[in-house]
Write a protein that binds this DNA or RNA. Structure first.
Lengths: 217, 217
DNA sequence: TGCGGATGCCGATCTTGACGTCCATGGGTG
DNA sequence: CACCCATGGACGTCAAGATCGGCATCCGCA
């Protein structure tokens, strides 16, 4: 068996076949199963049959909770996007020290990528970017995180809005790409770089880059 | 008509319908048309009918030149990947001054993104990452560019290989993401930031970040 | 110069695979 | 014990990738 196609039906199927369940709880169950399948296979390769099977229900029940495949995907994507944006906001608000802000924000991206559920793949590696609604959510993550960072930069320096925003996007890109590569190369093996070490290293790069700009006051 | 679905059949169709053409030249024509369609619509939304129509031929001729849709996509992707990697290599080799190296490499990414053909979308916004061959090409760009940069970092500092590589990936991520957002926000309008200004700004951020590391000698 | 054959291309077709619905069934309740 | 309804296996449909019979074109020959 090749390692390129991780099968998605290895879940324990907590709510087994034919079990009556409250609608709210079942909806959560379906979302969880769908996340697993979308993360493992991507949007196009994921079949509604797979999702239903993994959730331990049949396809009609799935369609009783979600009008279609796209709606299901968007529901998951929106949650994943809100999650990282909120964490980024909290990280920036957690301190007034900009150096610590950089470290905290970097840690948010690394933790997000390291999360076992793998929801970050919906945001950073989506295969449905041709769909405008998906594109909007994906772009929203970088855009809103960058806005939060840009506000800090703009407050503390003399840089105009547009320039602050471009620098903020650069920092977000640095965090996002490096975190994904860290996961791919060192995330699973024990011989690689630890998450905290990697996050601190890249935080250092980011802080050295951003700290030198002229202060506002 | 909505603006969300840019039609792909607005090309001048240089080799019109039913025109005899040398095989090599026709192949180039097909690749060009395919690139336009894939860039505009993404892999999944792109139909072989669209590509054939844009090239001014019918579907059978398309299949006489390429065994299938995936092969066609991979041919384009490989060229696009080689292109940016080679440019990155040239940029780093163009000088011994690391500051100029950063600026040159950043310029490579911004120029690549600003290119009218839009081949960068195949590399940075592919919607076929579930395909291992595609994933390999896409990752190869970041990986090989990072290797080139990491070699410079490792030569000039005391950082171990793994750390140099992670910093290099961070710089590549910064360039890639910021360039794409620059294009989306300022690339078309005249009121935004100029390419050189944006590239220089982000180069400054990168250089401030990387210059401070302890020199080797 | 007119004609026959061969060549290669286009319109029409087939197939597959996955999304999105319908008839038997089984369990719960009055 | 009979009714009711949620469930699931089986199915229709459709889009898109991948191929086949007419036909126009070109060349060689009398």
């Amino acid at each position: 068996m090749t390692a390129g196609q991780p099968r998605a039906d290895a879940a324990p199927e907590v709510g087994g076949r034919g079990v009556r369940m409250p609608r709210r709880e079942r909806r959560e169950q379906l979302l969880e199963s769908a996340l697993g399948v979308f993360v493992a296979q991507g949007y196009h390769a994921a079949a509604m049959d797979d999702i239903a099977e993994r959730a331990g229900v049949s396809k009609p029940v799935l369609y009783q909770h979600f009008p279609g495949k796209l709606d299901l995907y968007l529901a998951l994507l929106e949650v994943a996007a809100d999650d990282v944006i909120a964490n980024c906001r909290d990280a920036l608000a957690s301190t007034q020290d900009n150096r610590l802000r950089v470290e905290a924000a970097m840690g948010v991206f690394y933790s997000y990528v390291a999360d076992a559920a793998g929801a970050f793949r919906l945001v950073f590696e989506s295969d449905l970017t041709s769909e405008p609604a998906v594109r909007a959510q994906v772009d929203r993550v970088t855009s809103e995180c960058a806005d939060l960072i840009a506000a800090v930069i703009h407050d503390d320096t003399d840089l105009p809005h547009a320039e602050s925003r471009l620098l903020a996007v650069s920092l977000v890109g640095m965090a996002q790409v490096s975190a994904r590569f860290w996961l791919a190369e060192h995330g699973d093996t024990e011989g690689g770089i630890d998450l905290e070490v990697a996050s601190a290293l890249v935080s250092g790069l980011a802080w050295r880059g951003i700290r030198g700009y002229p202060l506002h006051d």
